[in-house]
């Protein structure tokens, strides 16, 4: 039996309706199940657009995007049960407590009350939020808010987890805790698709990566292979070697 790829992007063309020019033209990308896949690129390269295409927030004008074998273009909401999304913005209700946020998003993820309670206990424990479970999130530090943002994305045990800059603006301890938890999730079978500007962190977390620039995949493979292939010692050097040193808007 052939296992479907976590993500299978075939000949995708995408352009924003009111913008001139295409963001992606004939984009092809496969991410295998179980991968810890990093999507990197300079500002404006199209990382967030790619993430939005993969999560069904945007739909391609041509080509297909399959998530675990399901075409996202069908707009079937059942597909959404298969993946979780941790956006860069702190996308939750600051007036609610972490437990209340998890209850609401858990229900929207299709979980029943008992499962939500169980998962809420687990996640608050793992992410160190047990003591503040009944405090409004608006009173939290940046790092605590990031952990709440992550917990919401994984409440329903998704098979694929999309993470857009999950550790931006957090201290070393929080970053370490988040990365450790993401590795643990991956060990339990969750595919991670991750974007970040923290290349040291990416080097630690990812096993596969794609480097995007101006709507094209300019490098793809395992991190070790790519470093060897381009004769560089770090992801940052590889990044600069391929995408150049000039400013990007």
């Amino acid at each position: 039996m052939v296992t479907a790829d976590a993500i299978d992007i075939q000949n995708v063309r995408f352009a924003y309706p009111r913008n001139e020019g295409e963001i992606y033209d004939h984009l092809n990308l496969k991410i295998k199940q179980g991968d810890r896949f990093g999507v990197f690129g300079p500002n404006g390269a199209g990382k967030t657009t790619l993430m939005n295409l993969m999560t069904g927030l945007l739909y391609p004008q041509e080509g297909s995007i399959k998530l675990l074998g399901h075409n996202t273009a069908t707009r079937n909401k059942e597909i959404n049960k298969l993946f979780g999304f941790v956006p860069q913005e702190l996308s939750f209700y600051k007036e609610l407590t972490p437990a209340e946020n998890l209850h609401f998003f858990g229900a929207w993820a299709g979980l029943d009350g008992n499962t939500i309670m169980k998962r809420t206990r687990e996640l608050l424990h793992i992410l160190g939020l047990e003591d503040v479970r009944n405090k409004q999130v608006q009173t939290f530090s940046g790092g605590m808010k990031r952990r709440v943002n992550l917990a919401i994305g994984v409440i329903h045990n998704p098979k694929v987890l999309f993470l857009d800059e999950p550790t931006v603006g957090v201290d070393v301890q929080t970053r370490h805790a988040i990365i450790s938890y993401l590795k643990e999730l991956n060990n339990n079978g969750t595919t991670l698709v991750y974007t970040s500007h923290q290349l040291n962190e990416a080097e630690d977390l990812c096993n596969e990566m794609a480097l995007i620039d101006e709507g094209k995949i300019v490098a793809k493979g395992s991190i070790n292979e790519l470093l060897e292939q381009h004769n560089t010692s770090s992801l940052e050097n590889l990044f600069l070697k391929i995408t150049g040193k000039s400013y990007r808007n």
Partner: peptide, 20 residues
């Protein structure tokens, strides 16, 4: 507030119709 915080976008990625 929900629009600007990104909550609407997050809800769009969840398997629940928005009319709820």
């Amino acid at each position: 507030r929900e629009k600007r915080s990104g909550s609407f976008i997050r809800l769009k990625t969840l398997p629940t119709p928005f009319w709820i």
